[in-house]
Design a binder for these strands. Structure first.
Lengths: 121, 121
DNA sequence: CGTCGAGCTTGACATCTATCGAAACCGTGT
DNA sequence: ACACGGTTTCGATAGATGTCAAGCTCGACG
């Protein structure tokens, strides 16, 4: 299974599901829950949540792995593994430039999750 | 370690952390990430996400466990275990009335998570 | 006071996950 | 062509997690 280019986002879980109303307003069905739980699970690790915040708040909209790795005590391969999880969840996108790989956020899913948790009034 | 009453919310992870700016605007520090990752992890299971949505969208602001359990194929003890996870994450609150236990959402944390993921503009 | 039903807790088990080191991969520069 | 540094993948392992069955607790109601 070779993935040739770096800009492809490994595809969000199933199909791009429509943006759902907040859970405070309407129940999510099982399929949607299974879908979105993948994204929440990806954020459910301290390292990944920090990685996500570093990527999302990166000035210029992107950040190099070489700037992410030294911020943690864990090995580079583990960082890479966490980044893959975020990628597969559809939360970030990776792109190679020269020798370095840059990550950028995917605001669409972030917005969807944010809207989902909005308690409304 | 006995917890005697049902209305206490098992306490949010550490202390009630201040509402943080969106991750798109500022990095979260390790302690905050560890804290909030617990909540995201709690939502990172399809069953729990559905439970959360059923609780958050319950008319009257609360819902009986007896209305939650039959919506799934899994055993009651597993439902109870998932509800405990949501409780310990600070996402829901349980209260016993007569023979039944009712769950209600805790909007504060939901709002915090929602704001955290807001990509802003 | 004894029993019944609704939920919770405990113990056990199979699966998943976070982590590491080693090896492979892929541009760059010599 | 070769070696180098950054990143990912692979294989292995300890620990966490989802699930169930069985036992327990707490009110309600005879």
């Amino acid at each position: 299974m070779s993935k040739s280019e770096g800009s492809v986002a490994e595809a969000a879980p199933t199909s791009e599901r429509q943006c759902c109303p907040p859970i405070a307003q309407q129940r999510v069905d099982a399929a949607t829950a299974a879908d979105l739980a993948i994204a929440f699970k990806a954020l459910g690790d301290p390292v990944r949540l920090q990685l996500m915040s570093m990527i999302a708040s990166a000035p210029g909209g992107e950040i190099c792995v070489c700037d992410l790795t030294p911020a943690f005590e864990i090995s580079g391969s583990t960082i890479s593994h966490h980044l893959k999880t975020l990628r597969e969840a559809g939360l970030v996108d990776a792109r190679r430039r020269a020798s370095w790989v840059y990550y950028r956020p995917r605001p669409a899913l972030m917005r969807q999750l944010s809207a989902l948790l909005d308690p409304g009034a």
